[in-house]
């Protein structure tokens, strides 16, 4: 009984490490220079469309609402201290430092990450990856690499758009609806937000989230059991694992950057 438990623990530990090894090998193979750079540019543009443009709507809408909610909640708290002037500071700092990078990464994992896993899993199941191999084309270069770079480029841009739209949403509610002075909103924000401290750190966060989410999504698809059941499992585990990874990594990064 106990022996069994330990055995299972050991086995799942080993398979986790082996999975990590395969994920690392996949990323290494994909990022190794292939010597056909310019042929890959159209693929990158295509993937920027799939990964970036198609995630834009959910990011803009969520950003707008989150900014509006932040402003509404913040106002009711701040007004108790007569400090509703600081609304701009509260909205912008929470968006730039935390909510922008984290929420957009979570949405990205759900929208683009799961789609990537399903797409690559399906390519594996329909033998498209094998068929590339047999055509003497490395699927890591052809399929994985452009998607990886598209993820890394898209998510920081999406997070910036999220924060910018969120601040506009906060302004909408705070200034146009609740009547906070517009000048105070912007000037308190400007005096408290630092380019280096807040915006660059937020950007670094979202680049790291992009690596984590895209890597997990691509690996899950590439490593999926090529059946319909395997693909649906892989898709679910992409969303679950990348969400957990985002929150865990966020804690570490926040501790390092702002702690």
């Amino acid at each position: 009984m106990l022996i069994n438990t330990i055995q299972n623990l050991g086995r799942s530990g080993l398979s986790t490490i082996a999975g990590l090894g395969r994920a690392g090998a996949m990323l290494f193979g994909a990022l190794k220079p292939s010597g056909r750079g310019f042929k890959l540019l159209p693929l990158l543009i295509k993937q920027l469309y799939v990964v970036g443009v198609q995630s834009l709507i959910i990011i803009v809408v969520s950003g707008l609402f989150i900014g509006m909610v932040l402003s509404l909640q913040g106002y009711t708290i701040l007004v108790g201290y007569g400090a509703e002037q600081s609304l701009g500071q509260m909205v912008s700092l929470s968006l730039l430092r935390e909510l922008g990078p984290v929420v957009s990464a979570l949405l990205f994992a759900g929208r683009a990450g799961s789609a990537l896993t399903a797409e690559i899993g399906l390519m594996k199941a329909t033998e498209q990856l094998s068929s590339l191999e047999m055509m003497a084309i490395d699927p890591l270069h052809q399929i994985v690499a452009p998607r990886f770079w598209a993820g890394i480029i898209s998510l920081p841009l999406l997070a910036s758009i999220f924060s910018a739209v969120g601040i506009i949403g906060g302004h909408l509610v705070g200034v146009d609806w609740l009547g906070v002075d517009s000048g105070a909103f912007w000037s308190v924000m400007q005096s408290s937000v630092e380019w280096q401290e807040d915006i660059v750190n937020g950007g670094i966060k979202s680049i790291i989230f992009a690596i984590v989410v895209t890597w997990i999504a691509l690996h899950k698809g590439y490593d999926a059991v090529p059946t319909s059941e395997g693909i649906s499992k892989a898709t679910t585990s992409t969303v679950v694992q990348s969400s957990l990874a985002i929150l865990g990594v966020d804690f570490v990064l926040t501790a390092v950057m702002f702690g």
């Binding site: 329909t126 033998e127 498209q128 094998s130 068929s131 047999m134 055509m135 084309i137």
Partner: peptide
């Protein structure tokens, strides 16, 4: 492998390319 062709059981056509582009694909690549 460039001297080998393989017809997979499912065909393994690239779903996002047209038939023409599928056939042109290996030529364009190599």
């Amino acid at each position: 492998r460039r001297k080998m062709g393989m017809l997979f059981q499912s065909g393994a056509m690239f779903t996002e390319l047209s038939v023409f582009d599928n056939v042109a694909f290996p030529i364009r690549e190599h």
